[in-house]
Design a protein around this nucleic acid. Structure first.
Lengths: 341, 341
DNA sequence: TGTCTTTTCCAAAACGTTTCGGATATCCTA
DNA sequence: TAGGATATCCGAAACGTTTTGGAAAAGACA
């Protein structure tokens, strides 16, 4: 039962050829005669040979694997964002016969050592970094390395690296402007963690829209959230206590916008009548709840990131080293002109 | 800039000791004197040595990696189920300093060759199989192998393997019985793909409850779904056209239950008044929508699966080789006694 | 017949690690 | 001071693959 592993050596012993010839035969080199190649292939077949990928990796000094470390904590990824990006990355990698080495670490020192492990332990040929932060140490570390990597999101570091990002600033500028055009003047904002790049961009877009409309960004109407549903609820509650109450609330992500909807319902405030609510991401529940939002094609971004990385690994030049996508505004029933009262 | 890789050989050359001694010094063996160990550690430090994990894997014949192949298709995982399980697996593996090798393949021949690649290419020390199917070829394949694996879900094969599963049959028996006790007699059912084990179990529970209540399982009130939102909508539409209309609808998963809610809303059928709706899983949107459902602790199951696998890999005996969890009924506002009309 | 290709094969080195089985030197004990 | 124990080190083999640089045999050409 405990059959010995079958390696090139096994085939060599069985066929009488050398390990070299067996290897080259299987690889299809032209310096092995058709007849012996045939013999070797048959032997491999009957013995059930499968190459040891680890040995091959060691010899070839490449792993056909890319690494992804999810900067998440807790039992559920904070939102469907991670699922979509993993799906995109996974599908694209499968096309190139590459594997994905996945870890999950909340930001912190253990996260960075997970990167070091992948990079310096030479476990991967490249890395994908997602959800960029201010002064992102992952990026400064990786750029000190010669390993290829691509990033979802921009950074405030003075480092050039290949990335894809959605233009969050323009997205929220557009969304805020839309609400202003409907007549809203008191627009509450639920922000995200200050160290996340996209959270800042989104806030910036909101502010700029207000300013260009001649309004000032009243910090009383800006409440910090943490992108989770719980944090969103807390922030929404706080905003809804303000007097005068905001007529619209924008949340940095859909998850918190959804939370705002629940809180409003609980207080018998009618969404899309007494209160407008909007978010960013267009996650599945937003659709059910008819939430106005900015859509970003996370799955496609995942695919594109993989593809870029694959090019880099192969040593090909990148057609676009920096990609900035425009998010699309999806207007649903959660937004309307303010009730004049 | 293109600094040479630093290996044991580099340290050996620099310190004047042999590769063997360097290796043993770093590993902390007692047959290297404290002074030379000190020298070696310092040299490793200044040179920035990091062991090549691939080489180590080859030598040790183990990878400290487990494989997971997501049986999913399309841009988004069909539901938050996959996210939660990946999170659980990832967190638990991190505790044991193991990595996760992830692929994504829809069921089919390419899926199986992805398994073969991981197993026969010796890329992983063990595998986790999720979402079991009838006559699941992944399981029969893996059990023909000597590689450890654990499974989320039971199977109809005559093979013994370690698994964790939730008792879907009992879960839906309980849920259906609850609805019957509220007075419902026409309970529609949105089933799942026939080849998925859990979908069958859930349907069985539904049927058994009807039968024990003296009712028959009228197949007109059972419509096939595919676990996605779209499929759920189609099925719900079909059920709501029946005359007499069902007073309650149970869906095989929450995603389709959520879809049922949207369809009903669209038709101005009030959920929790004119129609009761319930699902299975307790995904986040269910909470927002106040959907009655059966909760299964997917994250914890992921953790536990990892843990079981880790024990198997270490060669430890398993305390529980077969775990069957009871799902918890979460009653929310989407269910109520039928309107008597 | 002798040289020159071409065909077909293989030994050995390499990738970077760990481990086995000594070897040498030092120390203690009687 | 001979004996054995102990401390410290290392060469070589092994993990399984690919590649380099020939070697041997066969064929082509003069």
């Amino acid at each position: 039962m405990m059959t010995q592993r079958v390696t090139l050596k096994t085939i060599a012993a069985k066929t009488g050829f050398s390990i070299t010839t067996v290897s080259r035969g299987l690889a299809g080199y032209s310096d092995v005669s058709p007849r012996t190649k045939q013999i070797i292939l048959e032997a491999a077949e009957v013995l059930g040979y499968y190459p040891n990928l680890t040995a091959r990796q060691l010899q070839k000094q490449s792993t056909d694997t890319v690494g992804l470390i999810l900067p998440a904590q807790g039992p559920r990824f904070s939102d469907p964002y991670f699922s979509a990006i993993i799906a995109g990355i996974g599908d694209e990698l499968a096309q190139h016969d590459m594997d994905l080495l996945l870890s999950k670490h909340p930001p912190g020192p253990k996260e960075l050592s997970a990167y070091r492990r992948m990079v310096e332990g030479q476990r991967v040929d490249g890395l994908i970094v997602i959800r960029t932060r201010k002064q992102d140490e992952r990026i400064s570390y990786l750029s000190s390395t010669s390993l290829p990597f691509v990033v979802f999101g921009r950074s405030d570091l003075d480092i050039d690296f290949p990335y894809i990002d959605e233009d969050s600033e323009v997205g929220f500028f557009q969304l805020t402007t839309y609400l202003l055009s409907q007549g809203h003047t008191r627009i509450g904002f639920i922000s995200g963690p200050d160290n996340l790049m996209f959270a800042n961009f989104r806030f910036d877009g909101y502010c700029r829209a207000l300013q260009e409309a001649g309004l000032t960004c009243d910090m009383e109407y800006v409440v910090r959230g943490d992108l989770t549903r719980k944090g969103g609820e807390k922030a929404a509650r706080q905003l809804l206590l303000l007097a005068p109450r905001p007529t619209a609330i924008i949340a940095t992500n859909d998850l918190m916008a959804v939370a705002t909807v629940s809180v409003a319902r609980e207080k018998d405030i009618k969404i899309g009548e007494d209160l407008s609510v909007a978010g960013f991401d267009d996650i599945p529940p937003s659709d059910y709840l008819s939430l106005t939002t900015m859509r970003q094609p996370t799955y496609e971004i995942g695919r594109r990131l993989s593809n870029m990385l694959h090019q880099l690994i192969k040593g090909n030049p990148l057609e676009d080293r920096h990609v900035l996508l425009k998010p699309e505004m999806i207007v649903r029933n959660s937004t309307c002109p303010p009730r004049s009262y």
